[in-house]
């Protein structure tokens, strides 16, 4: 069956069985693996994406249902060069440990702030009711959302991954930006 989606602003067309779940379309067909499969019973929220701008659990939506609609995954929330304030806040406030729930948590939190730009801690906790985390005890997740909300209200400047992670120790010739340090050697070895 022909399925036409807009994913992170780009058209994506696929021919798939109607039973293909949106999360599998995103991960296995389109190749966006930032959206995770956690519980597969619509409990944990690891698979959360925005569908027409609102958070949904993509393990409980068939891709065909999203045909003609807009999907935003974690890859569309921000980029390494311009992190979304929520991504930066999860980084700076240590809002994650293993990282498995993080992408869904960030997408849910982005939706939460759209509805309520200045939530109390109680409202943050209630807004993240659909996302489970096993590592953090939620304390720093709540803090991250609070920090991001403040940054967004104050229109704080966006940062890149490199701003946040200085190369250590500083090399005389830093590797080319945006590429892994192993790439030049790999290219040499493969040619």
């Amino acid at each position: 069956m022909q399925i036409d989606l807009t994913v992170n602003g780009k058209r994506a067309s696929l021919d798939a069985e109607p039973r293909l779940l949106l999360v599998h379309a995103l991960r296995d067909v389109i190749g966006l693996t930032g959206t995770h499969v956690g519980c597969d019973t619509s409990s944990c929220g690891a698979c959360t994406v925005l569908l027409d701008g609102v958070s949904v659990k993509s393990c409980t939506v068939f891709a065909v249902q999203a045909s003609g609609h807009e999907v935003t995954t974690i890859e569309g929330i921000g980029t390494a060069d311009e992190l979304h304030p929520m991504q930066e806040a999860f980084w700076s406030s240590h809002g994650l440990q293993c990282g498995y729930c993080t992408t869904g948590m960030i997408v849910s939190a982005v939706d939460l702030l759209k509805r309520n730009p200045d939530p109390s801690d109680e409202q943050i906790r209630a807004g993240l009711e659909g996302n489970l985390c096993r590592c953090t005890g939620y304390e720093n997740i709540v803090k991250s959302v609070r920090v991001a909300a403040k940054a967004m209200r104050e229109h704080a400047p966006l940062h890149s991954v490199r701003d946040l992670m200085p190369i250590h120790p500083p090399a005389e010739e830093p590797p080319p930006s945006g590429e892994g340090i192993i790439i030049p050697a790999l290219e040499k070895a493969l040619t």
Binding site: S42, L51, V54, S55, V56, V61, D111, G127, E129, G130
Partner: peptide
């Protein structure tokens, strides 16, 4: 009912 994502859908 449910949670925010469930209520959205």
């Amino acid at each position: 009912l449910g949670d925010p994502q469930v209520r959205n859908r």
